[in-house]
Nucleic acid binder design. Structure first.
Length: 205
DNA sequence: TGCCGGATCCTG
DNA sequence: AGGATCCGGCAA
């Protein structure tokens, strides 16, 4: 596995037209949440929306895994907003939080098993001018709201691409998830927040 | 039907 | 440290 240094990433930023790749297929998401989370680091999130084509490299994610995860929206069953998490892998789960901000997730795993990856940090590559170090900021910068809830990640509006900028194992940091103290143990301590070491686009704390 | 609190972010 | 501001879950 090779990783690109900062210099090569800067070169990629200068050649956006040359870097488009096919969308990551649905099968990528149809695996355990932690596996998908690890491999999602370094993948490029592409948004085709009101601002045209935007792209950024995912540098921070969190996994929410299974019906027993007390921090997951799926903890109360397949009702309300969490329904998408119980559906097939490879779909977007977008919800409104604190009445103000949106959060973007990728549904993972088999039908009936609720799991998802929350996108928390994005390194701008193409067409992104606002801050993207935090889940609400990412959605604002990419014009992602609940209209995108439930769309497939192979759609023409939002998808992942592999630009060959994966994160080396030695650069992956695993820590407890943010803002889920209410879940209690062991969930509050599960190291299911993954991010790239020393990347400025990782959310604060 | 009402209330409580949240996978956040900004301002003071 | 506290406010913004909507929605889901749970108690009554």
């Amino acid at each position: 596995m090779t990783t690109l240094g900062e210099t090569q990433r800067l070169q990629l930023r200068d050649e956006p037209a040359l870097t488009a790749r096919p969308p990551v297929p649905q099968a990528f998401y149809d695996r355990p949440a932690l596996t998908v989370a690890r491999e999602t680091l370094g993948m490029v999130l592409v948004r085709q929306g009101p601002a045209g084509r935007q792209a950024g490299r995912i540098v921070e994610v969190e996994a929410y895994d299974g019906p027993g995860d007390a921090a997951s929206h799926a903890r109360s069953g397949a009702c309300g907003r969490a329904q998408v998490m119980f559906g097939p892998a490879g779909y977007a789960y977008v919800y409104l939080i604190y009445g103000i901000h949106h959060c973007l997730n990728f549904v993972t795993g088999p039908v009936g098993y609720p799991a998802a990856i929350l996108v928390r940090g994005l390194e701008p590559l193409v067409g992104i001018t606002e801050r993207t170090n935090g889940p609400g900021l990412i959605c604002r910068a990419l014009a992602v709201d609940r209209r995108l809830n439930g769309i497939p990640l192979t759609s023409a509006e939002l998808w992942l691409e592999d630009w060959g900028q994966s994160v080396a194992d030695s650069d992956v940091i695993a820590r407890p998830r943010i803002g889920i103290h209410f879940a209690g143990e062991p969930w509050a301590s599960q190291p299911w927040r993954l991010y790239e070491r020393d990347n400025r686009w990782v959310s604060k704390r």
